[in-house]
Measured scan of single mutants.
Amino acid sequence: VTVHVNRYTYHFDNPEEAEKFAREMAKRLNMTVEIHGNTLKVE
């Protein structure tokens, strides 16, 4: 599972951890999480 935050890319083996990380980053940056299959984008 890949998480994109701005120009950074993070890889996770565990989808739940990836989503938790993405949501935490989105909250911190006041952004939203978009899910595209195995890719989560924080925008």
Rank of each mutant, 00 (worst) to 15 (best):
E24F: 09
T39N: 11
M25T: 08
V42T: 04
A26H: 02
N30I: 03
Y10H: 04
N6V: 07
L29K: 04
N38D: 09
H36C: 14
D13Q: 10
V5E: 02
V1Y: 15
D13C: 14
M31I: 07
L29F: 12
M25W: 12
K27D: 10
T32K: 13
H11E: 07
Y10P: 01
A26E: 04
N14D: 14
E16M: 11
G37R: 03
A26P: 01
N14G: 06
T39D: 11
E19R: 07
K27I: 10
M31C: 12
E43N: 12
T32N: 09
N6D: 13
H4R: 10
A26M: 04
E34K: 15
H4F: 04
N30E: 05
K27A: 12
G37W: 03
R7T: 10
A18R: 00
R28W: 09
A26K: 03
K20H: 10
H36W: 09
I35K: 13
F12A: 00
D13H: 07
G37N: 06
I35R: 14
D13M: 08
H36V: 13
E34A: 14
T9H: 12
D13T: 11
T2E: 07
R7C: 15
T2M: 07
T32H: 11
N30L: 04
E16W: 12
E16A: 11
V42H: 04
E24G: 07
H36M: 10
L40D: 05
E17N: 06
L29T: 05
A26W: 01
V5L: 09
F21D: 00
A18S: 01
L40N: 05
V3G: 01
K41L: 14
P15E: 08
T2D: 10
E43L: 15
Y10Q: 02
T9G: 04
N30C: 13
K27R: 12
N14H: 06
R23T: 09
M31H: 08
P15A: 13
M31G: 15
E17I: 07
K27V: 09
V33W: 04
V3L: 02
K20D: 08
E34H: 15
E17T: 08
F21G: 00
Y10G: 00
A18L: 02
K27W: 04
K27P: 01
R23G: 05
I35Y: 13
M25K: 02
T9E: 11
N38F: 02
V33F: 04
A22Y: 02
V1D: 01
L40P: 04
R23Q: 10
K41F: 15
T9P: 06
H36I: 13
V42C: 08
V33Q: 00
